[in-house]
């Protein structure tokens, strides 16, 4: 990156010129940090000096200091793209490198949206719940678990026992005498042998 950028003379910077950087940097929200701090997810091969120069040359943010740490990810079963996760085939996702910078000027994040209807959150959550429920039925111990009806049956039984409800036969609609539907079909009287 150029020692002098479009934002004028900045802090002491590196002199190595990088022309076509091909990586992403994610700004992450951390409400616990003071407003002069900002946290980023950076590539694993990034160092503190890289981030300082990148922020100055790309965004005009003057940085006083950088803190860096790497978060190891949890071990999980099989790779994320596996169709059926094989048991005991362990996979650890790549570590995530995070950096915190101290800036000259404070920065407050824009507000979180209160109404999530543009993202269709209701339907999204409902479908997610449905998928979760159907995944439950695939588990081995699903049959040993009490069904959803059991609760309802218990409630009904309790109501009957306490006398809140009275048992009676199902209400059938009285439609009168039985009628012959197939009137045109002639049934032979008796088959003589």
């Amino acid at each position: 990156m150029a020692a002098r950028s479009a934002f004028g003379k900045g802090p002491k910077l590196g002199r190595k010129q990088v022309y076509l950087p091909n990586f992403e940097i994610t700004l992450i929200r951390n409400p616990k940090l003071p407003p002069t701090f900002a946290a980023f997810i950076v590539p694993l091969n990034f160092n503190k000096l890289d981030l300082r120069d990148y922020l100055w040359n790309g965004y005009g943010v003057s940085v006083r200091g950088v803190r860096s740490f790497i978060q190891m990810q949890k071990v999980r079963q099989d790779k994320p793209n596996a169709k059926r996760p094989a048991p005991r085939r362990w996979f650890r996702p790549r570590s995530i490198k995070k950096m915190m910078v101290e800036m000259d000027k404070p920065f407050a994040w824009p507000q979180e949206p209160e109404d999530f209807s543009p993202w269709d959150k209701e339907r999204y959550d409902a479908i997610k719940q449905m998928q979760e429920d159907s995944r439950e039925t695939q588990k081995l111990d699903y049959v040993t678990k009490p069904t959803a009806e059991r609760k309802s049956i218990a409630e009904q039984a309790k109501e009957l026992l306490e006398g809140d409800e009275k048992w009676g036969p199902t209400d059938w609609e009285d439609v009168g005498e039985a009628q012959e539907v197939e009137k045109e079909v002639k049934i032979p009287e008796a088959v003589k042998e």
Partner: peptide
Amino acid sequence: AKDLPKIETDPDHGLWGFFHSKEKSLATP
């Protein structure tokens, strides 16, 4: 944290470059 004085961000702050708008933190679909 709600009772703390509101932080006034410089409208020309470089970190605005990480958002599509200054009103909300993420763009709608």
